[in-house]
């Protein structure tokens, strides 16, 4: 019988790691998308501001200065001052870190729980799936802000409780996406192959399923940060989040509301800051989605 060997060219081809290649592709597509890049650059800028901003601004964001109350934008106070005479520019710079902190942390926590619930649900199916997903449906049935409002109302108003509330209302979104992706990946033949080798569920889930469903998770996380920022500001605006005198943008907006007609700059600048951050994350998130998975585009 003929020996079965395969002729192999001894010449080494260019080594290609599919993961690296994939990453490069995504990066290339992202770079071609100017709006997404603009969003991305803004996000980096915001993060730099959040980190070094408090050190380069001279004023104290909390110190009142009664002499300079309600002043309009000037060379001394770029964004003017509020009803306590505090520099709005300084307060917005200081608020950046709070906003990003809430945005990132709440989405991160929501993502972790959502991914775990989603994978467990999709992988095991059956009764566990039914229980988890029906719970998620209940959470999804509430309008986002209302759910967050309810949770904060129960826990009390503070930045940490806002993070908890937003995490909870982010969970079902992630859980659903992850469950769907898990269902499709679980049926792949190589998952069966690893199972036939005797791999534990833990190994299958983390080594073979999770890496394959990262794209939708990353996309959702990026887009979700915008929602989280908006919701956090909303809660603070309603007086349920960060408490005065914390320089939180939503709270500042709420304070500025009383002076809307005479001194619109007090509400205008925090509002603009919120818009910019949300816009940046949305643009970037859309770009990431298009680059990672064009099929998700709706």
């Amino acid at each position: 019988m003929a020996e079965t060997t395969v002729n192999v060219s001894t010449e080494e081809k260019k080594r290609v790691n599919p993961q690296m290649e994939n990453f490069k592709n995504v990066w290339r597509k992202l770079r071609q998308n100017y709006l997404a890049m603009a969003g991305g650059i803004l996000i980096v800028l915001f993060m730099i501001i959040a980190i070094i901003g408090p050190w380069i601004t001279t004023g104290d964001p909390l110190a009142p200065n009664v002499a300079d109350r309600l002043e309009g934008p000037s060379s001394q106070y770029w964004f003017g001052t509020d009803h306590h005479g505090r520099d709005i520019f300084t307060r917005i710079i200081h608020g950046m870190s709070i906003t990003l902190y809430i945005g990132f942390l709440s989405v991160f926590v929501g993502m972790i729980f959502g991914v775990v619930f989603g994978i467990v649900s999709g992988y095991y199916g059956g009764r566990i799936d039914a229980v988890i997903m029906r719970t998620m449906d209940v959470l999804l049935a509430f309008p986002g802000i209302l759910l967050a409002l309810g949770i904060v109302a129960v826990l009390g108003g503070s930045i940490n409780n806002v993070i908890i509330a937003i995490s909870i209302f982010s969970i079902p979104v992630f859980a659903r996406i992850v469950r769907g992706s898990t269902l499709s990946v679980r049926k792949l033949e190589y998952v069966d192959a690893v199972r036939a080798l005797g791999a534990s569920d833990f190994r299958i889930i983390f080594r073979h399923i999770l890496p394959n469903i990262m794209s939708p998770i990353i996309v959702q996380a990026t887009l979700r940060i915008a929602t989280a920022v908006l919701t956090a500001s909303g809660l603070s605006f309603l007086g349920l989040g960060a408490q005065p005198p914390t320089p939180e943008w939503g709270a500042m907006l709420a304070a500025g509301r009383n002076y809307m007609w005479e001194h619109p700059h007090i509400a205008l600048f925090p509002g603009l800051a919120i818009v910019l951050v949300v816009l940046a994350f949305n643009l970037f998130g859309d770009g990431v989605r298009d680059a990672l998975d064009p099929k998700l585009k709706s």
């Binding site: 599919p18 993961q19 792949l188 033949e189 190589y190 069966d192 192959a193 690893v194 073979h208 890496p211 394959n212």
Partner: peptide
């Protein structure tokens, strides 16, 4: 299916 039965990563 040899294309589906091994993890491409």
């Amino acid at each position: 299916d040899p294309y589906a039965s091994i993890n491409p990563r």
